[in-house]
Design a protein around this nucleic acid. Structure first.
Lengths: 239, 239
DNA sequence: GTCTATACTGAGATAGAC
DNA sequence: GTCTATCTCAGTATAGAC
């Protein structure tokens, strides 16, 4: 799938206080993490054996234990990194918006960021999404705690949008959040690189989430300039 | 969660041609299936051991093999039943609509049916949803084949809606289908009986999917009478 | 048909040589 | 640090008594 995955967005290894040459075989540790993120995101929790990870990292299964205490610790770290990475990228992309960007434009950014990271930009993000409901409950609990900050970001943006009347006031926002997450995260599973591009998927998804599936009769332009209105009825149907 | 699950909707054991008393311990077989559906839907693929299933069905692990060749066969059957059940219930509920129900009303029905079965009405449906991306690829392939008819039903209804102009013409319908599935199916994982009721969730979900999150300025009533329009701006916010 | 007892297997984990 | 070899154990599956 993604030989070209960069995964350099928001790599947040805490920078050493002083310039140190990266200790020679913390590089191996990193290789193992990268390999594991990839394999887990491809084969899931029960489909991934330590042997697979070791093979991809170019060593023997037993050698992994020099770097990690257990398979579980390895999973913990990958998922944690995935969440942090998604979160950091979101913050970054929000910051890159013009300061007067509308709340809807900001939500759009959150949606795109999450989907693109999960689909093709980061094995860590994909893995954390794919694994969250596959892993045993204790692992999941730890992860959900770590995801609070990211969840809070979504909540804030949604509330901000509601405060200024950009979104409907009648929906339970935490339900909304979970539904959007579902639509985005499920894609991590069904997405095949042979179909629509991630960018195109993101577009349709943003449209659906913000404006819905139903033909909105005579919808007028909203107060913000950032979000495209649904195209006119004459658009050519797709598929 | 669901001691009261009926699971009698669309139970499709092929009726014997002649009236036969149900063979005494096909009943056991059924008990095993019910137990397995429940446990798998609660603990997932790798969290479920044959011992758990046996315990819930009231026998020893080894005894399962009198009724099923392998754990895999058992999973196959449960998931298959889940799909059939969801599909059959959908057909039933569509048939129960007034013949002049609008296409949007029909989509609404599909959405509600899928969500409610997955959340609380059928362990089989929950299990098939929860397991589909957890099981090994060969099991999944078989299931996806079995789901084609149900997928086709969705596709038909969506296309019908588009044909009469009830939904937007610019979205890729198979993407739409997967996004809706994601929003609905993800709920099977995060849903906790302590929050909003499934009915309430279904309402918000239908609203989101059909009309979107954005405040639609000056939306007018659609041509169909079945679907509630978004409430006025004065609605009281939730959460 | 269901039980008890046991065989088999895959995969995580450890030990010790290099 | 990484290898090879091995231990351990959980969990599926089988055998044979009842």
């Amino acid at each position: 799938m993604a030989n070209a995955r960069s995964d350099d967005i928001a790599r947040q290894t805490p920078a050493p206080a002083v310039e140190e040459p990266p200790r020679k075989s913390d590089l191996t540790r990193q290789r193992i993490l990268d390999a594991a993120a990839r394999v887990f995101s491809e084969r899931g929790y029960s489909g991934t054996r330590l042997t697979d990870i070791a093979a991809r990292a170019g060593l023997q299964a037993g050698s992994l234990y020099y770097h990690f205490d257990s398979r579980e610790k390895l999973i913990d770290e990958i998922m944690h990194l995935g969440t942090r990475r998604t979160h950091a990228a979101a913050v970054e992309r929000l910051a890159a918006l013009p300061p007067d960007a509308s709340p809807l434009r900001r939500l759009e950014t959150l949606i795109e960021n999450h989907l693109l990271l999960g689909l093709e930009q980061s094995d860590y993000s994909s893995a954390s999404i794919k694994l969250i409901w596959q892993v045993p409950a204790d692992i999941r609990e730890r992860q959900l705690v770590g995801q609070r900050a990211y969840g809070a970001l979504w909540r804030e943006e949604l509330e901000k949008a509601r405060a200024v009347g950009a979104i409907r006031p009648d929906l339970n926002l935490s339900t909304v959040r979970m539904m959007i997450a579902g639509a985005l995260n499920w894609a991590t599973d069904w997405y095949k690189p042979t179909g629509d591009s991630p960018t195109r998927l993101a577009r349709d998804l943003v449209e659906m989430v913000l404006h819905g599936l139903a033909r909105a009769p005579a919808r007028e332009a909203g107060p913000d300039g950032g979000v495209a209105d649904p195209p006119p009825a004459t658009s050519r149907p797709r598929r």
